[in-house]
Structure formats: structure tokens, C-alpha cells
């Protein structure tokens, strides 16, 4: 009786989950080794991170604050994955949503109960507008959305930078490179964590339900899995692509709006802590699971928060970006390995 490795079309969910745990662990080990080589004690740093994150309610509140945009950008990327596309422009749509929301918040006056929904809608519109060109190019002429969505990130970053340091800059106080404070604020839910967190959770559950349990969601998934087949079955694939991509942009835009209205209260260059790019990792770690988005966003929030804590130790947030890249690399490799199973040679008649 002999055994052999056989590749299966899809990995076992349990194996895929284990792969993620191993990938994250490996990335932390490699990161720790690099830290040790550069002369710092990784265990002491880890201890400090754990203490300041979980030792006080402040730490946990920070986690919730960082997780809010990450849930949404992760969701934005995950939605497009369902139809087999990549939206790696969540960063740009985040900026566009923040810009649109800030425009309403800065220049329109009204009661807060009216203005916050208005800013929310502006965020939706901003995010959607930002993904419109890649969407149309993808749906009508088949231009790969990877590069088009990504290129617009740089444009959005520059646009926000332009407004925050140019026409909308705060002329009063000495705050450089940001607009005046926006009066309309998301009310707080728990400590510093604002209601945006609840909105992010609700939107994620809603999107997951629609994608998993409705006919529309089914059609989206089929369009992603096999476009020709979907077309043959009478599914309007093009319309599904447009809807899904616009939805994805809208979700990322909401993340930007919540960051402006809930956390930063100003528009400033670099308002996104790479949330859009980290959203890709959140989506990859979560695979297609809605609960997975929460777990992955929490993890990324933890890592991001660790970077902020460790700034006092001379580490930079860019080191954290490198670490997340390592997580992504190991996950990608592990995902491929998860396709393999040991099977008995006499049963494998492939």
C-alpha cells in the first residue's frame, strides 16, 4: 500500500484555516528574527505590544478604531473577489470617499442628524465615482482592472493632498497640511470607538447575506467562477460586474467617510494608514467568509497597532508594511499547498 500526493481543485476549509495560522506565525517568526538581528529583543517588544494592546481599555479601543476601516476595505476587496476580479484600488476609493465626505462636512451647514447621512452618501458617491473608469473599462472593453484601479490610488492621494494643503487648508491654527476640524462627528459607541464600527459590521453581514443567500449573489458567484457558462445560462455578466465593482468602490468610500467623520475629524494627506492595501490582505486571509473578514481585520488592526506602539522603540510603520507583505506571501504559498492531500495510490485514479 503506497501513498501519494494528489492536487485537488479546491482546498479543505480546515486546511486553509490552518495554513493561515501557520503563515501568520511564520511571518512573525521571520519578523522577530530580523528584529533580533538588528539588536532588539523581540520578546520584550512582543510583551510590550501585548501589554499596551490588551492591558488597558485604551488599547482595545485603538484596536476597534483601526479595525473599522480595515473591515470595510477588506469587504470591498472581498466583494470583487466573489466575481473573480481584483479591486486593489480600495486605497484610492477610500481617499475619494473621505474627500467627498469632507467637502460636505466643511461647506454645508445643517443639523448633525441630517449632515452625517449626507456625508455617508457623499462617501458612497466618492468611492463609486473613483472606481467608475476601471469598472467601465473592465465591463465594456475587458481592460484588466488590476492596474487601472491601482493607478488611480496615486491620483486620489495627490488630489487629497492638494485640497488639504491648498484650497481647503486650515488657515487659522498652525496645523499644517490639513483642513479645519469638521463639526459633524460620529457619536461614540464605546470609549473612542464610534458608531462607524457598528456600521462596518452591519454592512459586512448584509453584503455577505446578499452574496450568499440571494439569487443576485448566486449569479455574481457563477459569473466569477465561469463567465462563459454564466452568459450561456442567461446571467447578464456585464451588469453584474458593473454592480459589484461599484458596490466595492462604495464600501471603500464609506470607510474613508467614517475615518473623516469618526476618527480624524479633518481631511489630511495620508489620512489612510495604507488601509486600502491592508484590505487586500484582510480579504485574502478571510477567503470568502464574512466572519473571516472580522477576524482578519482584527488581526491586521493588531499588527498595525503594534507598529504604532513600537514607534517609540525606533521601529517604523513601514516595517509593519513589510511584515504584512510577508504574511501575504506565506499565505499565498500555503494556499497552493492546501490543495494537496495524501491519498492512497490505489484509490487515486486521476
Amino acid at each position: 500500500m503506497s501513498w501519494r500526493l494528489q492536487r485537488f481543485p479546491s482546498p479543505k476549509p480546515s486546511v486553509a484555516l490552518a495554513v493561515r495560522a501557520v503563515a501568520i506565525l511564520l511571518a512573525l517568526v521571520v519578523g522577530g528574527l530580523v528584529v533580533a538581528v538588528s539588536g532588539l529583543n523581540p520578546f520584550a517588544l512582543g510583551n510590550q505590544v501585548m501589554k499596551s494592546t490588551f492591558g488597558s481599555s485604551f488599547g482595545l479601543e485603538d484596536l476597534g478604531l483601526l479595525a473599522t476601516p480595515l473591515i470595510l476595505t477588506g469587504l470591498a476587496v472581498m466583494i470583487t473577489r466573489r466575481i473573480g476580479l481584483w479591486n486593489i484600488g480600495a486605497e484610492g476609493q477610500f481617499y475619494a470617499g473621505a474627500l467627498a465626505a469632507a467637502a460636505i462636512g466643511l461647506f454645508v451647514e445643517g443639523p448633525a442628524w441630517l449632515m452625517l447621512p449626507a456625508m455617508f452618501l457623499a462617501g458612497v458617491a466618492g468611492g463609486m465615482a473613483w472606481i467608475t473608469i476601471p469598472t467601465l473599462a473592465r465591463a465594456f472593453v475587458g481592460v484588466n482592472e488590476l492596474i487601472t484601479t491601482l493607478l488611480l490610488n496615486f491620483v486620489a492621494t495627490l488630489l487629497v493632498y492638494y485640497f488639504a494643503t491648498g484650497p481647503w487648508r486650515d488657515r487659522g491654527a498652525g496645523t499644517l497640511g490639513s483642513t479645519p476640524r469638521i463639526r459633524y462627528e460620529m457619536p461614540e459607541l464605546w470609549g473612542m470607538v464610534h458608531w462607524g464600527f457598528a456600521i462596518a459590521v452591519v454592512l459586512t453581514v448584509l453584503a455577505a447575506a446578499v452574496l450568499s443567500f440571494t439569487r443576485w449573489g448566486y449569479e455574481v458567484r457563477i459569473s466569477g467562477a465561469n463567465p462563459e457558462n454564466a452568459l450561456y445560462a442567461g446571467i447578464p455578466v456585464r451588469r453584474r460586474i458593473i454592480a459589484v465593482m461599484l458596490l466595492s468602490g462604495a464600501v471603500a468610500g464609506v470607510a474613508g467617510m467614517l475615518e473623516v467623520a469618526g476618527t480624524v475629524h479633518r481631511l489630511q494627506g495620508g489620512i489612510s494608514n495604507n488601509f486600502g492595501y491592508l484590505g487586500i490582505i484582510v480579504a485574502v486571509l478571510a477567503r470568502t467568509s464574512c466572519l473571516g473578514v472580522f477576524a482578519a481585520a482584527a488581526l491586521m488592526a493588531f499588527i498595525l497597532n503594534a507598529g504604532i506602539i513600537l514607534q517609540t522603540q525606533g521601529l517604523t510603520t513601514s516595517a509593519i508594511v513589510a511584515l504584512t507583505g510577508l504574511v501575504l506571501l506565506f499565505t499565498a504559498i500555503g494556499d497552493e499547498f492546501a490543495h494537496y492531500r495524501l491519498v492512497r495510490a490505489d484509490r487515486a485514479t486521476a
Binding site: V284, T316, A319, A322, L329, D335
Partner: peptide
């Protein structure tokens, strides 16, 4: 060799490279 997803590995390389270089 490991045949992992090229898009993911490329993005990972971008994040690793820019992060490491900045550090």
C-alpha cells in the same frame, strides 16, 4: 516552483519591498 498565486505573491513582494526599503 511552489506555483502560488502570482497576483498575491506580486502584491506581497510590493509590500515587502516598499516596507523594507523605507525601514
Amino acid at each position: 516552483l511552489f506555483r502560488a498565486n502570482q497576483v498575491l505573491c506580486g502584491l506581497a513582494l510590493t509590500l515587502m519591498g516598499t516596507g523594507l526599503a523605507a525601514t
